[in-house]
Amino acid sequence: MNLSQIDFLAAAAAATAVMMCGITGIQTQFRFLALQTALFSGICLLEGFSSHGQHMAQFIILAAVVLIVKAAGIPLFLMWAANKMSIIRDKGNTASPPVTLIMAFGAIAAGYFLIPQFAVYSAGNPVSAGMAVALLFIGMIFMVTRRLAISQVTGFLIIENGIFLYGLTQAKGMPHLVEMAVVFEALIAVLIAGLVILRINRNFEHIDVTQMRGLRH
């Protein structure tokens, strides 16, 4: 099977998500997140080229918005927040990072082999559909296995990236205004979550989700 360039970028994005599962340094995680999102703006441009210049301007604007808001803005905000809380490492909670890495690889393999069975074939790029679902799985694995509340935000962003990828490559003809609105929605969600985590850190002096159950009392 020959991979198209879009499929290749999607697979590279999924591979960065896998590597994120093994990284414990918070700042490095955000750098990988930025890289992953930058690959999506590349996919936007390629989609624009493959539509033969019909909606080229729309695709370029969408790629620029993704690059500025999601690949630069959100990771920078999260890095600032992590710096402010002076957290350096998230060593995992239920599963250690190596186990998470292997699980994430399993998610990619599952995405690759299972999803083309029920992807929209007419839309093309069945591998991208698989990678989008793999990103969903990896984001969930990431959220479940990490200890700090800020990693929940990172996991949410990986899931968001998966949904974005699916929409971009499978739903042809979806208005780009909707995609752009989703990008800004993610920005607002991350801003609110980041500020809430900052407040939690100020009030309780930790953002460890395993101990947050006790906060009700």
Binding site: M1, V18, P98, I102, F105, Y112
Partner: peptide, 22 residues
């Protein structure tokens, strides 16, 4: 050390996945 080496294992596995599917 196992944490570091798992990155290698996963990179190899990704290479193997591509090799199998191609």
């Amino acid at each position: 050390v196992p944490n570091f080496l798992t990155f290698g294992t996963v990179l190899s596995l990704l290479a193997a996945l591509i090799a199998v599917t191609q």
